[in-house]
Computed example of a mutant assay.
Amino acid sequence: MPQKTAVILFNLGGPDSQQAVQPFLFNLFNDPAIIRLPNPFRWLLAKLIATRRAPKAAEIYAQMGGRSPILPQTQAQATALQAALGSDDYAVFIAMRYWKPFADDAARAARDWGAERVILLPLYPQFSTTTTASSLRDWRRAAKRAGLDVPTAAIGCYPDEGGFIAAQALLLQRALDQAETAGPQDAPLRLLFSAHGLPKKVVTDGDPYQMQVERSVAAILRRLDRPAIDSVICYQSRVGPLEWIGPATDAEIERAAKDGCRIVVVPVAFVSEHSETLVELDIEYAELAHGHGAAAYIRVPAVGTEPDFITGLAGMVKRARVDDGQPRCGSGARPCGNAWRRCICTDQGV
């Protein structure tokens, strides 16, 4: 008999008002996956960082109407996924990590709906201990608190899942078609695949995120079938004094602009629009590109509710196994192999 299955969409979350900016930042930096210090030191540092960064962050959100668009976009994805699943035996709930609705809200809602099994689905295609693993730990706490003790499966990553890659390639091809008529026709074309950065020490400690970003880009380029196209993988949104993985997106944009390129930027690790795309890429980096002489600057949209992406998510949900409760890669394979000790398939990953 079909079982009532709650699908929990994990996402970062974002402030829903100017007043929410500082507490959102505090929640972010108080996450032990983000700042790896014991309390009370992490709590104190998170308070300090949130207080200092809140005015600048508030200015950023003011450029997006005073709030983050990530919740309404995630709600649209949840609605589209519900329709793609095509059965009342499924119900989709949203669990944001750092702002409302939290995992506690989703766990109570799933319990009250009468969920008999749970599928955890992060809207982070590439696994990281700072995103997916953090959300999985938070979910376990919330489910226990809500008394939601049912068979549960976690889809840990899907860096080269077919629907995700098809949606990315389709949107990129549209941008390339636009680039064909943008700027001087003899200007070279360069693709910049931009992902959110991580401190280098997180990666050297065994986090497979950078490797999985590279897998996503390789799969998109195969789908695009333009092997000679000039492309670079780069990383944005660096904060703090630590050394981060690179190259940096802003540096690559400046380099491409000085080379007189038509620049096409692909937000390869973002499936919805938020401050990193709508402000950092669309405003700050666009100004940087034009200021250094770029022939054109085009930004590919996030996959959002593209049908291929939603179909891919629905397929992973329907294939998910809850028999042993172990987190799994969405492809059913192990893209990390044995080289990354903090991947989703290892005890250290979650």
Rank of each mutant, 00 (worst) to 15 (best):
A62H: 12
G332P: 13
L45F: 02
L170I: 08
A195F: 10
Y209Q: 07
D89C: 11
Q73A: 13
D88H: 14
F93V: 10
Q210R: 14
G315N: 12
A167Q: 01
P69K: 07
Q210S: 09
Y90F: 14
L85R: 05
E254W: 00
T311A: 15
V232R: 13
L170P: 00
D88T: 15
P40M: 10
C261L: 08
A142E: 02
F10Y: 12
T277C: 05
Q212F: 05
R111D: 11
A166K: 11
I34S: 05
P72M: 06
L45I: 11
D250K: 08
Q326L: 14
F93Y: 15
Q73Y: 13
R145V: 09
Q19K: 14
D207K: 03
G66Y: 07
R108A: 15
Q168R: 09
F270P: 00
W340D: 01
W139P: 00
L198G: 00
A153S: 13
L81Q: 09
R174E: 14
R52Q: 13
A218V: 05
Y61I: 09
T132K: 02
Q3E: 14
Q75W: 08
Q73M: 13
L224N: 06
A333H: 14
W244G: 05
N338V: 09
R97I: 04
A153V: 07
G197D: 02
A339C: 03
V303W: 05
A84S: 12
F93A: 09
A248G: 13
E214C: 08
A58H: 02
R215P: 02
G349S: 01
P151K: 06
D112G: 05
G114P: 14
P227A: 09
A109M: 11
L281C: 06
A6I: 11
K56G: 11
R174V: 01
E276L: 03
A289S: 09
T277A: 06
A187T: 03
F10S: 01
Q19W: 06
N30A: 15
Q18Y: 08
I94C: 04
V203D: 04
P267S: 08
E254C: 05
L9E: 06
V150M: 09
R174N: 12
D323Y: 01
D104S: 15
L45D: 08
D225W: 00
R117F: 01
M316Y: 02
G183W: 04
G315V: 00
V264F: 02
S68N: 05
W99Y: 11
L176F: 02
R42G: 11
V203F: 02
G332W: 01
L172K: 02
A50L: 04
T5I: 12
R145D: 14
D205I: 04
T130C: 07
V317M: 05
W99G: 07
D104Q: 15
Q168D: 02
R141H: 12
S194M: 10
Y61G: 03
G337R: 04
V300R: 00
D230T: 09
